[in-house]
Design a protein around this nucleic acid. Structure first.
Length: 114
DNA sequence: GGTGTGACAACAA
DNA sequence: TTTGTTGCCACAC
């Protein structure tokens, strides 16, 4: 197993998040076939190659809170991007009950082609 | 090949 | 609801 393939799977999984929905780090990890490796997802996002178009802003913490501190530029930008996707961000948070992505496993497996 | 690290999750108060 | 602590383990150096 070459190191780095997991990152690719993570990126692919994130790319599958539909507009108007969000997913948690743990969820991404799980779908990518890496249960419990939520932190790896975070690291993968920090290693995203320049030029790769990835809806990183649709990835939140398990409780719906943004991954960044409220005052940070990243948080502001993420908030803006989410709002463009018709997702309501309130006080650095998203209502998971409404916007959490309900993954279609069959489709995921189809697209990831394990 | 040991050490430090991390855009986290779960639990406790 | 928020903050602090702990566990987790692949990855980069």
């Amino acid at each position: 197993m070459t190191a780095g393939v997991n990152f690719q799977r993570i990126w692919q999984t994130i790319a599958l998040i539909p507009a108007g929905k969000v997913a948690s780090y743990g969820q991404i990890a799980d779908l990518a076939g890496l249960p419990g490796r939520a932190r790896l997802v975070g690291k993968a996002l920090g290693q995203v190659p320049d030029g790769m178009q990835l809806p990183w802003y649709r990835v939140l913490r398990s409780n719906g809170q943004l991954a960044f501190p409220k005052g940070s530029e990243q948080a502001k930008q993420q908030t803006g991007l989410l709002q463009e996707d018709n997702i309501v961000v309130f006080n650095n948070r998203v209502k998971l009950k409404e916007f959490k992505w309900q993954p279609d496993l069959a489709e995921i497996l189809w697209k990831l082609t394990f």
